[in-house]
Structures are given as C-alpha cells and as structure tokens.
C-alpha cells in the first residue's frame, strides 16, 4: 500500500533534513505505528503520503503508483483514497456531527441520496449515531475525534492516516479511539498511526516503526515502544 524507496526529504526554505534515506513498506490491510520524538519525521512521512511535500530524493509509491503520477489536478484523486485524522480534529464548527461527516461526501461528489445511509453507518462505527445533531463544541474532545474518524472513513478509503490522534485526549478516550481505529483496520483498511502514546503502543500491539532524526532505526513486527 505504501512503498518508500530510499526517500530523503529536505525542506527547501529551512534546509531541515526531515527524512533521510528512508526505505520501508506498509502492506495492504496492515496496522502500523510510527513512533519517535518530536522532529523525528513522523509528520513528514504523513506529508509525503498526502503529497503535501515531495521527496528530495528517492521514490514514494501509494497503492503501486508513484507519487509523481498524481500531478496538479490529480492530487485530489490521491487524497480521496486516504482518510486523515489529526490531533487537532479539524472539524468545521458551524456544522453538526452529521454535516461534518457528510461534508467529506459532498467534497468528492457523492450523490446526496447516498449520504444518510453512509453517514449513519460511519457514525455508528464510532458509536456516535445518537449525537449526529450535536455541534462540535457540544461534544467532548474524545467525541470530536471520533466524528473526525467517521469523516475520514465515510468515503471508504483503502488507507487511513492518523497523526497523533490521541494527543489531546485522556487515557480513556485514547483507548476508545484506538479501538475504533483497530475496528476500521479489521474491515480491511490499512491504518498508519503516528503517536507518542507509549501505553497505547504497548497495549494494542502492532508492527511499530521507530524514527530518529529522520532515519528508520527500528522496525518491530511484534510491536512495543522503544525510542
């Protein structure tokens, strides 16, 4: 699903070396953690997959296609195949939970008649079907993050990227979010979670990639948090 081949990323303005000679693969249907200190390169990895940045050297392939194939107007087609969840949930505060999730379908041009069923299913998956009328500010942070996950999965993307999805959440809500992401993975979606949360990585064990100063220093198929 994701294939990095000797990828280096240097940000042009600051000349910061974000990733250096990174080679790794994520298979279809896998659940992986990406761990590392701040500045280790986790977000840069996400930016490359989303084509918010381009590699300085090396090649990135998503679902077998090189990133360079998604030029200009084709970039949105790539992003439609990737669900995204961020620490800051990026919900639109003037829309209720239902409309926030439906917004994803509107943006990619799904016919309106399909929205109720698909949105309801997505909200049910994250356990918030009963709160579809609530505005984001009427929801707890954990619930907001669950709405963000519903928005990310409503278009059934084959890949889900979660960048510090539990960064703002307490222990209980963090576990809840992780369980939901695991359920999404069990349905066949490839899930990549960038996180600092040692306890979660230790508890819900999956393949774990450890980055340090832009380099891959550990690839543990059995999981476990070790920086």
């Amino acid at each position: 699903m994701i294939d990095f081949n000797h990828v280096t990323l240097e940000y042009p303005v600051t000349r910061t070396l974000a990733l250096e000679d990174l080679t790794m693969q994520v298979a279809r249907g896998e659940f992986i953690y990406l761990v590392g200190h701040s500045g280790a390169g986790k977000s840069s990895f996400m930016n490359l997959v989303l084509k918010r940045a381009l590699p300085t050297r090396g090649e990135v392939r998503i679902a077998g296609e090189p990133l360079s194939r998604y030029r200009g107007r084709r970039t949105p087609l790539l992003r439609r195949r990737i669900g995204t969840v961020f620490q800051d949930n990026l919900l639109l505060h003037h829309l209720n939970a239902y409309d926030n999730v439906a917004f994803s379908l509107r943006v990619i041009g799904v016919p309106q008649r399909e929205w109720p069923q698909r949105v309801t299913t997505a909200l049910r998956t994250v356990g918030l079907e009963h709160k579809k009328q609530a505005l984001p500010l009427q929801l707890s942070l954990g619930e907001q993050q669950r709405v963000a996950i519903a928005r990310a999965i409503v278009s059934n993307p084959p890949l889900l990227l979660a960048d510090e999805p539990t960064g703002n959440l307490d222990h209980e809500n963090s576990r809840e979010v992780l369980k939901i992401l695991q359920n999404v993975n069990l349905r066949g979606t490839t899930v990549v979670v960038a996180t600092h949360a040692r306890e979660l990585v230790e508890t819900f064990r999956h393949r774990t990639l450890t980055l340090r100063k832009g380099r891959l220093v550990r690839d543990d198929p059995d999981g476990g948090y070790s920086l």
Binding site: L50, R73, P76, L77, L78, R79, R80, R81, T84, L90, L92, F103, S104, V107, I108, G109, R151, S155
Partner: peptide, 16 residues
C-alpha cells in the same frame, strides 16, 4: 481557510 484546508485534505478539486 480552515474549511479550505479540510476540503483539500478530503480531496476537493480546485474547481470545487
């Protein structure tokens, strides 16, 4: 800008 940022992440075309 926030809405536009979300749109771009969700795969909105520039025309949209």
């Amino acid at each position: 800008r926030n809405e536009i940022g979300v749109m771009r992440l969700l795969g909105a075309t520039p025309a949209f």
